[in-house]
Each structure stands twice: as C-alpha cells, then as structure tokens.
Nucleic acid binder design. Structure first.
Lengths: 213, 213
DNA sequence: ACAATATGTGAACGACTGTACACATTGATG
DNA sequence: CATCAATGTGTACAGTCGTTCACATATTGT
C-alpha cells in the first residue's frame, strides 16, 4: 500500500452489490435478478461482473457478510442505549426498526433470503440469526435478567425473540417507508409480542416442560 | 353438466399449477420461475399458459387459494384430533408438521411468498394467516382456555403463535424430507416455543402492558 | 345438426440472457 | 523502465424468454 489508487479497489464490486440491493429495495426478489440486470443498474458492462463474483449466489453470500456488519452495528447501538431494564424491550424494538428504515434494502434481502433459492445464503442468514440470539442471551445474563433460567431455556427464549423480530420484517416490508402511523403500530405490536415472551420466560420454571402430567 | 368430458376442464390448468409447485419443491424460488419453464415442466406448449393465467402472478394467486384449502383441511383435522387440553400443543404441532411433510411444496411456496416479489401474493398469504389466527382464537375461547384474556390480548397471542409456527417453515425447509431426527427436533422446539408463549399468556394480566412505570 | 365457445398446438418475432474471448487500461513490483 | 496481475470494455454467439397469431380440435348451447 504505497499510494492511494485513483480507482479504489472493489469500487465496481461495491457498485454491483449496491445495485442488487437497490433492485431488491424496489420490490424485486433477489432470486429473479440476473447478471445483466445488476450490471445495467450499476452502470457497468456485463463482463465486469465476473471480475468480482462467480455468479449471483456468490454476490448474495457477500451481501450476507455485509448484512452481518449492519447487524453488529445495530447490536452495538442497542447495547449502548439500552441501559435501564424497564424500557429495554421498547427501546430495543425502536432501535431495530430505525435500523430497518435506514437499511431497508438490506433487511428486505434478509427476509427474502430466509426462504430464498440459494441454500448457502439461507444458511448464512440463519447463522447470523443464531449469533444474534446467543449475543442476546449473553447480554441478558450480564444484566442479571435471566438468573432463574437454565442455559438451554434462555437460549430457547432468545431464539424465539429473534424469530419474532425477524418475522416483523415481513410486516415492515408491506408498508410504505414513510407511513409512520403503520410503522408505529408494528413497533407497538412487536414490543407486546416480546413482552408476552418475556412474561412466559419469567414464569417458565414454575411449569417446566419436562413433565406435564 | 350433461356428460363427463373426456378432457376434464382445468386439466391443463392443474398441470400448470402442479408444475410450478414441483419446481418450487425442487428448491427453485417462485419469483424466478418463467412461463416457458413451467409449461415445459407441465408437458404443455407455452401458449397454453395464457388460456388459464394472465401471468405468473396470477398463477401464484390461484396457488394461494389452493393453499387456503390445505390450511382449512389441516384446521379441521386439528379440531377433530385435539380434544384433551393437556396435549393440545404437542398434538397441534405434530399435525402441522405432518401436513407440511405431506404438502411440502405448498408450504415452501407459502414461506417464499411471505417475502416474495408479488405484493398481491404476499397480501393473500398474510390474509390466510390472519384468518388462521382468528380461528385459533375462536377455538381457544370455545375450549375455555383463555377466559382471563381480553379479545385484544387473545388475538395478540394467537397472532404470535401463528407467526412462530409459520417461521418453523424455514427450519423445515432446510432439512431433508426424510431426516426424521431433525424434524423431530424441530417439532419439540416448536412445541416449547408455543408453551413459552402460552405461559406468558397465562400470566399476562398480572403485568398488563397498559402502564409500565 | 349447427354454431359458438373453450381449449390446445405450432411457428415465428424481437428482446434479453449468461458467458467467452480478445483487448485496453491501470497500479504495483522488479 | 519493463513487467505483471488486476480490473474494465467491446464484441459476439447460442440459447431462452414472453408474447402474438393463425389454426386445429373438442365441448357446450340451441
């Protein structure tokens, strides 16, 4: 790295990924995108695609990697802003939704990928969700909010929380980005979902799932 | 209806819908299917497609209608077989999973459609889920299992239940159809999710969501 | 029996697709 | 400066796409 290059490396690469995201953000499904279409949107000649990706699945996988960064940024912000336990759920949901609004296309892509065409992308997204759930479990442990739960039960709870929030994406997908009223409805509903789950977790030990006679 | 026709009406129509489902069952995403591809799979000439559907979205919508029938059949079986309350969750989840295995492609299509390309299909599937949730609420009321919950809270709970079960589809999607061990794991995990939710619902009134100071 | 309608077939079109190849340009390294 | 690898461009080709049209066949209504 002697000098900065005039054309930064990966410039076209980024343009291609952004182009794919843009198309997804416009309502297209990732599985229906073609190489030519993406390169056209990126303002690049079709052959350039192969300089950076082997095929569309490859591009999808690299998008998941970038999605991971977005998720980690969101986690960091949540950890910094959610300090008092009583408003934990509301604030977390608010932060989540604001990140979805700020990176709408990314989360569209995530929602699509969960039932997408590429097995590899599917697995990658599910892996991100697992990581997210385990981090959530760590945080709850650290905040002494789950002391009566076994590791397995806490993991179960966090998995359910992450799934519930992830499903919210399909709700947000269906409303206009500027429909603040509807978005607020979704926010409140999601918060109540999580409250319901946490109430269940709080009373979980009293009727353990082992015996149910 | 004077006599039975040699070629039943809608024969090709059914073949086309089955063909689309078959392709989806093979891992393809509905949004990436083309008219020619579907007609080829159905063993029909491409032009025949237009005799029955205006475009692929139209076919998707009619698939959702058929999916509705599958869901209603499943509901009827659940209502008939789940009589005692103590095993309600386990039995319901078992019935659900068996129906998913029996109509794998249909539920694949449903999971895809939730974040699919066609807004109309999206809405149709979400509408089916709402109907399912409201029927579930009715059943719980009838079985006197939710007497302490307000209508709104019961609806909230059932919505969360339906979402959780629907998310299971992405899990079932990722395991081989004959991997009984993994499927049983998913079944147990889903049952525990629902137990957690119902425990939360049972203790919901003690910390109503209205005031949280 | 006859007309009308619904359904299936075949050929054809222009547009678009993925991909390969040869070539130009760039930045880094000797 | 010479060379090399990385990256971007233009051309080309064979295959597929959606869609139209004219035509054959089968079923229905009168």
């Amino acid at each position: 790295m002697t000098q900065r290059q005039r054309r930064k490396p990966g410039e076209t690469r980024d343009k291609l990924m952004e182009a794919a995201l843009t198309l997804v953000g416009k309502g297209r499904h990732f599985a229906s995108l073609g190489i030519r279409e993406v390169t056209r949107q990126a303002g690049v000649v079709p052959t350039s695609f192969y300089r950076h990706f082997r095929n569309m699945d490859d591009l999808g996988l690299q998008l998941v990697d970038q999605l991971g960064l977005v998720l980690r940024r969101m986690m960091r912000e949540a950890r910094g802003n959610v300090l008092q336990a009583d408003k934990l759920i509301e604030e977390s949901v608010t932060i989540f939704i604001s990140h979805v609004e700020a990176n709408r296309s990314f989360f569209f892509f995530m929602a699509q990928g969960l039932a997408g065409e590429s097995r590899a992308v599917q697995d990658a997204i599910r892996s991100e969700m697992r990581f997210f759930a385990s981090e959530l479990a760590n945080d709850l442990r650290r905040m002494r909010l789950a002391e009566h739960l076994s590791d397995g039960d806490l993991e179960l709870t966090c998995d359910l929380v992450v799934r519930t929030v992830a499903f919210t994406l399909t709700d947000l997908l269906n409303v206009a980005p500027d429909d603040d009223y509807q978005i607020d409805q979704i926010r409140q509903r999601t918060a109540r979902f999580l409250q319901l789950i946490f109430v269940g977790a709080a009373h979980w030990n009293s009727r353990t799932q082992a015996g149910n006679s």
